[in-house]
Design a binder for these strands. Structure first.
Length: 457
DNA sequence: AAAGCCACCAACCGCCGGCAG
DNA sequence: TCTGCCGGCGGTTGGTGGCTT
């Protein structure tokens, strides 16, 4: 098997990236897209291999990354997804907007595994530890078989890929149900029961999954084929990114595959969120046209920088990775701050979206609800025209739950206008100008950084 | 205060599959 | 069909900071 030619080159730098390197890479990709990764370092003037550049971009520099700690909701989702998908981190990451496979993998290995064990659940099989231990006694090989989930998910995913183009619902579940036997572990019971509780309101859920596995599989069915690069592009950066070239890699998959409404409403179920939340705030049916690009485009449309409430003034971009660099001193500088002191996060609207949702889930409905509704409606990408709502009764029905018809159109039109009026497809020229009240905590340093990077804020 | 341990995270490594020549 | 390149993935490693003793 051929190795990357870059691996043979000895002069290439390794290890942590310096801010200068980041700047070069970011600047290069911002201007030209990455194109062929192997040529990126040369073009960008970096002593790195293309692979390293790619990794740095995907895991760190990508503008739509959500940073900061994982929410409980995200953790639960990861656990549930892991049960279905096994160690397919990239696929799991695809369901978590703004998160990278690396991040999730690290979280799993460092944190979630332990949590599961503490709960008496085997992190490999997701079965109760006692059961696993019994099984181990009887059949040690079986208990070590980490491919269990993979085997299931392989066939499932194949099915899903095959069935993707079909209408959502029964036939897919039927096919799946024949190959998937229900399991009775705790997670499933929780998810299932909470799901039924959620569904008990006779809401507009088209699907009625009967297990958490179904939840995921149904969620997947709403996604376009993996690998379909689609029109899903972070339009917000499009003004400066040659997006046709800019393969967002897992980012693209992430956005492409994300069906936030299902994802959120279903995930909320497993957390026992209230019905009102999912049925009134979020359309339970992902607008078909929205699905492919909802998050990525909304990300692009409405980027923002927020700071954690506990320390809104702290700098800045990439705190942890720059811990060696940010003071301008080498690593032995005892003054270098650490990530634990708080971060200002470069967030996109999808993460805002989620944060708003998450905060609702925690019962904080006060100020975020309206704002998030605006996000939901207002963040429609330019390729989701308001007339698509008219043509899609499901979409309309869902949308009408949030707002009356008139305001919906007016909002969509307004946002569409904002987007299409911006011929370059960039972010609205000045986010603060447009929504001065929404991001009061924008750190000037971040603004500088973004300005330097994208040149048009 | 120092040493040891632990947790976290960024980055590397090796492999695989797709694709073009 | 073969070969090499490339992107992508998952496993693993190494560095760092924080906590404990």
């Amino acid at each position: 098997m051929g190795r990357h030619s870059c691996c043979y080159k000895q002069k290439l730098r390794k290890g942590l990236w310096s801010p200068e390197e980041d700047e070069k890479l970011l600047g290069h990709i911002t201007r030209y897209g990455h194109g062929c990764w192997s040529s990126v370092p040369k073009q960008a003037g970096l002593q790195r291999c293309g692979k390293s550049c790619r990794l740095r971009w995907i895991n760190y520099l990508r503008p739509d990354l959500k940073r900061g700690t994982f929410s409980q909701l995200e953790e639960n989702l990861i656990i549930e997804l892991h049960e279905v998908l096994g160690n397919r981190w990239s696929q799991i990451a695809a369901q978590l907007p703004g998160r990278t496979d690396n991040e999730i993998k690290n979280l799993w290995n460092s944190c979630l595994k332990k949590k599961l064990r503490q709960r008496g659940i085997d992190p490999v099989t997701h079965k109760p530890l006692s059961e696993v231990e019994d099984g181990e006694d009887k059949n040690p090989a079986a208990s070590r078989n980490q491919d269990k989930a993979s085997a299931v998910s392989n066939s499932e995913l194949n099915l899903l890929k095959a069935d993707h183009s079909e209408p959502l619902g029964a036939n897919i579940r039927e096919k799946r149900s024949s190959s998937i036997s229900p399991r009775g572990n705790q997670l499933e019971r929780e998810s299932t029961s909470s799901f039924h509780a959620m569904n008990g309101n006779g809401g507009n859920n088209l699907m009625a999954p009967t297990s958490n596995r179904d939840l995921f599989l149904d969620r997947f069915t709403a996604f376009p084929h993996e690998g379909s690069t689609s029109s899903c592009q972070p339009s917000g950066f499009g003004g400066h990114f040659p997006l046709q070239q800019l393969n967002y890699a897992s980012n693209a998959r992430l956005a492409t595959n994300s069906a936030p409404s299902i994802w959120l409403s279903q995930t909320s179920k497993s957390l026992g969120m209230n019905c009102e939340f999912s049925s009134t705030v979020i359309p339970s049916i992902p607008p078909p046209a929205v699905t492919s690009s909802f998050l990525s485009s909304s990300m692009g449309y409405k980027p923002s920088i927020t700071a954690p409430p506990d320390n809104p003034s702290l700098p800045s971009f990439a705190t942890t990775s720059y811990r060696l660099w940010e003071t301008g001193a080498p690593s032995n500088n005892s003054n270098s701050s650490t990530g634990s002191s708080g971060r200002t996060e470069l967030q996109n609207s999808s993460s805002l979206f989620e944060n708003a949702i998450f905060s609702w889930g925690l019962g904080d409905c006060s100020s975020t609800e309206k704002e998030a509704q605006n996000h939901l409606i207002g963040s429609q990408p330019e390729d989701i025209k308001w007339h698509e709502y008219l043509q899609n009764p499901l979409l309309m029905a869902a949308a009408l739950q949030n707002q009356n018809q008139q305001s919906l159109y007016s909002e969509i039109k307004t946002e569409t206008h904002l987007l299409t009026g911006n011929s370059s497809g960039m972010w609205p020229h000045n986010q603060q100008e447009q929504e001065p009240s929404q991001n009061p905590d924008i750190c000037p340093k971040d603004m500088q950084r973004i300005t330097a990077s994208y040149g048009y804020i």
